[in-house]
Design a protein around this nucleic acid. Sequence first.
DNA 1: GCCTGTATATCAGTTATGGATATAACGATA
DNA 2: TATCGTTATATCCATAACTGATATACAGGC
Lengths: 121, 121
Amino acid sequence: MTDPRPRPKPPFKITPVVFHVLLAMSEDSAHGYRIMQEIEERTRGSIRVGPGSLYFTLNRLQEAGMIRETPGPEGDDGDARRKYYRLTEFGRAILGSELEVLTEIVELAREKRLLRDEGVA
Amino acid sequence: MTDPRPRPKPPFKITPVVFHVLLAMSEDSAHGYRIMQEIEERTRGSIRVGPGSLYFTLNRLQEAGMIRETPGPEGDDGDARRKYYRLTEFGRAILGSELEVLTEIVELAREKRLLRDEGVA
DNA sequence: GCCTGTATATCAGTTATGGATATAACGATA
DNA sequence: TATCGTTATATCCATAACTGATATACAGGC
C-alpha cells in the first residue's frame, strides 16, 4: 500500500472543476466556451461550470504552468475571439496522477460490488 | 450517449468530501473519527477531511436520508462516545451513481492513454 | 491522578463556485 | 447594412464548501 511512484504535486487543490477542465483539454487544444459545453455534455449535465469558475480556473491553470495558450488548430481562422489552450507536460502529469487515484477508487468499488452494473461480470 | 438509466438525484452536490465519506461507509457501519482516518489512509494523505467538514457532512447526509445512525457493530461496547452510521439504500444508490460516472471517466482515460501506467497492457 | 489519544461538536476565516451582468464579434437573413 | 440570436471572453458578487482552531470530555496507560 505504499506509493510506488511519487505524484507530481499540484500547486493548488484539484477540484472537480479543475479536473474536468484539464480532462476536456486532454486530446486537442480547446477554447473556454467549448470546454464549458464539453463538460456539460460528457457528464450529462451533472456538472455545469459557469463562466465565473471557468475563466478563473483557466487563468489559474495558466499561471501554474499546467496549460498554455496556443494558436488555434490547423485551419481554424474562424473566430478571432477564441483563445485556445493546450495541456503542458506538467498539466498532463497532474491529470494522469488524478486519474490514477480515480482508477484505484473504481477498482475498489468493483471489488466491493458497489456498482449497479456488472453484478457478476 | 443517452443515459440508459435514470440516476438518483442527490438533494445537494456530491463534493469530493461527501463522496469519500459515503465510500468510507460502504462496507461496514463506521463512526466519524474512523471515517476521517480511513479517508486519509486510503488516499495516502492526499485528501484530508477535518472535523469541520466531517461532522457538517455527516449531519447533512443524515438529514437527506443517505445515512442513518445505528448501534455499533456486534460486540462493540467499547466507547460510548462513538456514533455509528450506515448507508441507507438511497445513500448506496447515490454512491453507485457517482461511481458510474467515475468509471466512465476512467475508461475514457484508458482509451486516450492518459494514465502513466499501463502504456501497453 | 495525570497525560496522551480518541471522539464529537462548533465557529470563524478562507476559498471555490454559480449566476448575473457586460461587452463584443460572428452568422444568418431580410 | 441593419438587426437578431448565438458564440465568446471577462468580471463581480452572493453563496456554498472547506480548513483549521478551539472546546469539551471520555478512555487507557502509566
